[in-house]
Amino acid sequence: MRTVIFRSIAPYLTSLMVLFSIFVLLRGHNEPGGGFIGGLIAASALAIYGIACGVAPVRRAIYFHPMAIAAFGLFMSGMAGVLSVFASVPYMSGLWIYPHLFGVEIPLSSVLVFDVGVYLVVVGAISSIALALEERDRD
């Protein structure tokens, strides 16, 4: 699997896939996509990178332990629900704000925070599994 061509294009492929996954994540509310799919795409990107170049570069590249990323995502999703406390509405009620940035209206919401949390959990957990299995491949 670790051919020169594969090794050379893998970083670019991975970056593209991660970018695409974020795109899928963000458009998920109105078009097909969302945290689960985005997370899976990013996780496969990391898995591909791991197969091509070994696990160590992947771990270096994502800097955090994948499980830590997943844990942070879970925390983020949970907290997205807690945000509704400040608006005196029940847990997990969606909240929306529309700040204007450079003249463009950007809809931000607690739901988006939640979806990003889902994304991080899926990326973290699945890539952690994949990386752990790939690591075992070499010992």
Partner: peptide, 13 residues
């Protein structure tokens, strides 16, 4: 819920 993708709205909202 301000979302057009009903599936995703069900899941996250």
């Amino acid at each position: 819920a301000h979302g057009a993708n009903v599936v995703n709205v069900i899941i996250v909202d």
